[in-house]
Amino acid sequence: MKDFNGPVLFLDRSDINTDEIIPARYLNEISREALKPYLMEDLKLPAFSPEALPGRRAVVSRRNFGCGSSREHAPWALEVNGIHIVVAVNFARIFRQNMFNCGMMAVELPENQIEEIFQAFSQKETLLETDLPRRRLTFSSQGKTLSYDFHLSDFDRRLLESGGWVEFAEKNY
């Protein structure tokens, strides 16, 4: 199973689309690794620069994360940069499914909790700890700690444990 812990990158906007995560001009690549330098190259946010990416292991954002194109290059670009978990209010369907299909996590938390996380941590270096058996996310920074329970369906859990949809489907269908 992949690692879902580490330093958090905050993206303070709704509707972050897959063109912003990985622009179409790089879709001519046929290896996941080749996408690594281009993650979020076109993303324009006041407090964001791609230089903030190295070392990040988790993303926290707002509503409708990953909307737009079906390109799995978006989760892959995150994956090859060491980011295996995105936490948001909700996700575009295809992006969310792509994450779990790759053995990665797209975790939904209610809007008020996401707001609380942004208020408490978005200006600080923050660590995320994921307790999968207890279904609990813990954010911590400079002595401040907040924990949140999350929902994970049985199917999504089995995708994570299998390592992805290809492995799951080969075994079950």
Binding site: E72, I94, Q97, N101, G164, W165, V166, A169
Partner: peptide, 21 residues
């Protein structure tokens, strides 16, 4: 008719199945 990522496509090609909510 649903758009999917490459992994869903791969399983679709191999097994002719796909998962949805």
């Amino acid at each position: 008719a649903a758009g999917v990522g490459t992994t869903d496509l791969e399983v679709g090609i191999l097994k002719g199945v796909c998962a949805f909510r």
